[in-house]
């Protein structure tokens, strides 16, 4: 299992910059993720993933499916947008 978070340095690194993908279009339509069909939505998300190796896909697919199914369809209406916080910072 190889996640893409680098937690440890490798020896003899001269730089930590990485080269980006070659695409020069940096905007995309939101249409693929506007679907209400969970399977389609999971596939749309996975299709956009860029750092995930094939060995991680089945586990992530399961995570995504369980997550989206656990979010009741009514929950979006209940979400008070003013309460939404980026999870990294919301504890502070």
């Amino acid at each position: 299992m190889s996640h893409a978070i680098r937690t440890k340095k490798t020896e003899n690194n001269s730089s930590y910059w990485v080269q980006p993908e070659t695409s020069k279009r940096y905007s995309a339509s939101s249409l693929p993720i506007e679907t209400n069909d969970i399977s389609e939505l999971v596939d749309a998300l996975l299709a956009e993933f860029k750092m995930t190796n094939a060995d991680l896909i089945p586990g992530m697919k399961e995570d995504l499916k369980n997550w989206l199914e656990s979010m009741k369809s009514t929950e979006l209406n209940e979400i008070d947008a003013s309460k939404v916080r980026d999870f990294i910072y919301e504890m502070f």
Partner: peptide, 20 residues
């Protein structure tokens, strides 16, 4: 209307973070 974030990549990052 354009918003400024690829939410799929953020979700991907959190899933990797979870693994890490």
């Amino acid at each position: 209307i354009v918003y400024y974030d690829y939410e799929s990549w953020t979700i991907e990052r959190v899933l990797h973070n979870k693994q890490a």
